[in-house]
Nucleic acid binder design. Sequence first.
DNA 1: CTATAACTTAGAGTGCGCTCAAAGTCAAGT
DNA 2: ACTTGACTTTGAGCGCACTCTAAGTTATAG
Lengths: 141, 141
Amino acid sequence: MTDTLAQPLTIREVAERTDLSMHTLRYYERIGLIQSIDRAPSGHRRYSEDDIGWIEFLKKLRSTGMPIREMKRYANLLWQGDHTVGERRALLETHRKRMQAQIDELNDCLSCIEWKIKHYKEFETMFFADYEQETVASPTA
Amino acid sequence: MTDTLAQPLTIREVAERTDLSMHTLRYYERIGLIQSIDRAPSGHRRYSEDDIGWIEFLKKLRSTGMPIREMKRYANLLWQGDHTVGERRALLETHRKRMQAQIDELNDCLSCIEWKIKHYKEFETMFFADYEQETVASPTA
DNA sequence: CTATAACTTAGAGTGCGCTCAAAGTCAAGT
DNA sequence: ACTTGACTTTGAGCGCACTCTAAGTTATAG
């Protein structure tokens, strides 16, 4: 799994590949979401493919609304080793429930919005019908 | 539609019914998301059923990630009258696209999380198999 | 009449997740 | 040797969406 052959990436390259800013990458490391990135002799960060994988996973958690506090908790459990598997699973299951609730709410609201859009369309059609019949001046001005 | 018979509600009652805080209800009014709530002679707010309906709709927009800035835009269009129907529809359609993208992303991430949960479960099962064979002390302590 | 509870306003404060700025180091090109 | 550019750190700043505070007014219960 660990790809020691591929040359490591600079922070700039990782930013491009992950669509996170270099600022955000350093920030995540600073707050302990990303751990121990290798350094070039100059002190510059050198990211491995594994690092990228972890960052991509962090992105998934964030984009599904997990608070950073909780992502840190997950990261810390992960770094503590195998004996935290149960807790990690529990954490992910909690998140899964939240995600499902989010999906359900989005779908509910989606039908509501779609209903409104449909009615607006009908209204617009009625309006244009009147317009064509009566040939009045457009009130869109 | 307008329910002039039902007695109007206090801000406390609306907060309870909508699950928004009284603070938030006043805040929404202050920034122009809610318009012209009736007042008792004392100056206290008296909400109509229509007001509640609007607030419930605002909640849907917020909970699906619409920024307040954009909700204000929608509200202002609505209050300008029928000639803004086209713009309102466009706004909702933009939001609908975002919602759909959000649902898609959530579903993607959901399968990823579920995959991880499944693997954690397998790991835990393997672990307990070892445990039963060797009858070692529980490391869950 | 008085106490207290419910409301009002304007403005300050909070927590989150970045995002930027300043000052410094290091490496490469001319 | 010098400039340019990419990086480093620490700490400050920002936008968002609330959330709370303080001081004042009004309503209600005993």
